[in-house]
């Protein structure tokens, strides 16, 4: 695995390896000194063409806990806003010696373009591209669900509700959860399901109420305000009535079922405040797990690189295991 561009690129073994590694790394966050020397001397660039403070600080924390040098490169206040191309930006980062580029971009496929051009040699991690994918979000969702559902998602029923059409989170989750053996149901109004969804490895439904009882986890997707003016649904109220998760609907879930949301939430729209803050909600935990999962991804992509070997790479690769064993 050289890059992480799509959740669909991960085999079951690779996905489980990332999740298991994240499990080990989660222990680091609980220690007083939350730092490992694994990626010391490595440079990781957070290349954010689109605002996302949440995702950026999660990747930044992950890289710093692995002792990497982190460069944050955001479109605002950089040369990108003056019209510099993705290519020139990539060449600049390459010239600076980036070992990995974490890229967030409003254009679907931008990370793919970066990874398959000759513009950069480092590993490319997709931190969300347009309406395509957000694989580390799917990994942290799977990680969180796995912890609450007995350590294995095989045969579990996971219901994803909302704007599937425009959601990179839904795409990545559908692919990854299927790889991990879960049964995925996408619930949305017909206008918010993509053409061709029949070919996805999922079931679909227009009816949220019919999809609640069997669910082991319900994942609510954010509905962007701009969708309301484009005839995807008549009004926010109607959307909320038909597809929002409120207390009445939550009470019909199985006792062990959890409620998830990738954030940021529209409270009162796709999820009511009572549900967002209830005991079933693992939304805050998702954020915590995000750092561990991103540490695992960076560790496996960058720490395992054999070319251009730094002076202490092999030593720190061993360190990660001994440190964690110490922590357990």
């Amino acid at each position: 695995m050289k890059h992480l561009l799509s959740a669909g690129d991960l085999s079951r073994d690779e996905a489980v390896r990332i999740l298991d590694t994240a499990e080990e790394l989660l222990g680091v966050a609980r220690r007083p000194i939350k730092k490992l020397p694994t990626l010391r001397g490595r440079t990781i660039v957070n290349l954010f063409f689109e605002d996302s403070t949440r995702t950026r600080i999660s990747f930044e924390a992950a890289a710093k806990r692995l002792s990497a040098d982190v460069i944050n490169f955001s479109a605002k206040g950089s040369s990108v806003s003056k019209g510099e191309s993705l290519k020139d930006t990539a060449l600049t980062l390459q010239a600076m010696g980036a070992d990995a580029v974490v890229i967030r971009h409003s254009a679907s496929g931008a990370p793919h373009r970066l990874a398959h051009s000759q513009w950069t040699r480092g590993a490319v991690v997709n931190a969300g591209d347009g309406t395509h994918e957000h694989p580390t979000q799917a990994l942290l969702d799977a990680f969180t669900a796995r912890k609450h559902l007995g350590g294995d998602l095989a045969g579990r029923n996971i219901t994803i509700v909302g704007d599937v059409l425009h959601s990179r989170v839904a795409r990545s989750n559908a692919l990854l959860l299927n790889t991990l053996g879960a049964n995925v149901t996408l619930v949305a109004p017909p206008t918010l399901l993509p053409v061709g969804v029949d070919a996805w490895p999922v079931q679909t439904s227009y009816d949220l109420d019919a999809s609640l009882e069997k669910a082991d986890a319900v994942m609510m997707l954010r509905v962007q305000a701009e969708r309301m003016n484009a005839a995807y649904f008549p009004s926010a109220r109607e959307y909320s009535r038909r597809y929002g998760l409120d207390v009445a609907r939550m009470n019909r879930l199985q006792d062990h079922a959890i409620v998830m949301h990738p954030g940021p939430m529209n409270r009162g729209m796709e999820i009511s405040a009572d549900v967002a803050d209830c005991e079933r909600s693992v939304i805050v935990e998702q954020v915590t797990n995000g750092v561990a999962v991103r540490m695992a991804v960076l560790y496996l992509l960058v720490g395992g690189q054999t070319d251009d070997t730094g002076p202490d790479t092999s030593g720190s690769t061993e360190n990660i295991h001994s440190d964690n064993e110490g922590a357990r």
Binding site: S108, G109, D129, G130, T131, H132, E133, R168, R171, P194, V195, G196, V197, D198, A199, W200
Partner: peptide, 11 residues
């Protein structure tokens, strides 16, 4: 527009 546009996230 088809299966592939949905998969690739391109309008």
């Amino acid at each position: 527009e088809g299966v592939l546009s949905g998969e690739l996230g391109l309008q």
